[in-house]
Structure formats: structure tokens, C-alpha cells
């Protein structure tokens, strides 16, 4: 089992709330993503059993939504917003800085499997730009010093 008992329980409860169980697909994908960090066929199959919705319907929905990585990523998934408000505040430089700090290109994972770096569309933190999301957390009003500190803390925690 990839999904924890707690996740399965949460999904099952969610499915009970809706008039139609199929509606629980996205919340279930989110629960799985928050626990596992990515989604794949094996995860879809477990979700299917948890919310009693056919596997194919889960896979179909999941592949449409870009928020969920479809293969394993580093322990920390760094998503930098590259959209206009962040770009005006230096998002491109932020990405370059992270590439240099981590020694990887955008889209890659560090050899120690700790960090994956990608850039994404607007995350709704436009007035606190530039920003990045690491796993579930938002880091806003970023400066090089803040980025150094965040990476150090995450490395220390890992």
C-alpha cells in the first residue's frame, strides 16, 4: 500500500459527502498528492478502491490536471511562479539562482533526490512576488538571503 490508512479514510469520508462519488476524484487526488508527493497508476488504483470509483475515471481526470506530478520527484518539490507579476519582480533571476545553488537545470532533480526544481504558472501570490511553493508551503517576497536560509533549513531537516 502506498496510501496511508489516514489518507484512505479521509478519501472515503470525502466520497460520502457528495451526491455522486465521482465528484470526490479531485479531492482524493489532492489527498494522495499531499501524502505521496506524486501520482501514478499504482496510486490511482488505490484511490479507486478507497472512493469506489472506476480506475479509468480517476486516471482520466488526473492526467488533465497539471498540479500533480505524474512521476516521483525529490523530497522537496520547488515550484517557482514564472508568470507576469513574479517575472516583473525577478522570477527569472530567482530560477537562475536556484539552478546555480542546486547545481541542476529547471526540470531536474538533485542527485541526492532532495530537490526537484520546476517553474509553474501563477500561484496567486502576485503582491508578494517573487515566490515559490515547496511541497505545500508558499515562500513569498523572496530574496537571495531568504532562499539560502530556506534551502539550508530544508537540508537540515532532511
Amino acid at each position: 500500500m502506498i496510501l496511508s490508512e489516514a489518507s484512505v479514510k479521509l478519501m472515503a469520508e470525502k466520497a460520502e459527502q457528495y451526491p455522486r462519488r465521482k465528484s470526490a476524484i479531485l479531492p482524493a487526488l489532492t489527498i494522495a498528492y499531499r501524502q505521496v508527493g506524486y501520482l501514478d497508476d499504482a496510486v490511482y488504483k488505490e484511490i479507486s478502491r478507497a472512493i469506489k470509483v472506476p480506475y479509468v475515471e480517476i486516471a482520466e481526470a488526473a492526467t488533465f490536471y497539471t498540479m500533480f506530478p505524474k512521476k516521483p520527484v525529490g523530497k522537496y518539490l520547488i515550484q517557482v511562479c514564472h508568470n507576469i507579476s513574479c517575472a516583473l519582480m525577478g522570477a527569472d533571476s530567482l530560477i537562475e539562482y536556484l539552478e546555480e545553488k542546486l547545481g541542476i537545470e529547471k526540470g531536474e532533480t538533485t542527485p541526492d533526490k532532495l530537490f526537484t526544481l520546476i517553474s509553474v504558472e501563477c500561484l496567486g501570490s502576485c503582491a508578494t512576488a517573487p515566490m515559490m511553493q515547496i511541497n505545500q508551503d508558499f515562500y513569498e517576497n523572496l530574496t537571495p538571503e531568504k532562499v539560502d536560509q530556506i534551502l539550508d533549513e530544508l537540508r537540515a531537516k532532511a
Binding site: S23, A24, L26, L29, E60, A61, Y65, T66, M67, F68
Partner: peptide, 29 residues
């Protein structure tokens, strides 16, 4: 009156109301 908190999957299109409804039904947005 009951309330369900529904979560999306990062698709801008689901802010358009009919796509939102499809998404809420468990379909592609």
C-alpha cells in the same frame, strides 16, 4: 444546509464556471 470543501487541480480553466462544474463532477475541466 450543508457545505462541501472541494479542491481543484491547478487548472486555470476551472475558474470558468462551466469548466468548474465539470471538474466538480469529477470530469476533466
Amino acid at each position: 444546509l450543508d457545505l462541501i470543501i472541494h479542491t481543484g487541480g491547478g487548472a486555470y480553466i476551472c475558474g470558468e464556471e462551466t469548466a468548474l462544474l465539470n471538474s466538480l463532477e469529477g470530469e476533466k475541466g
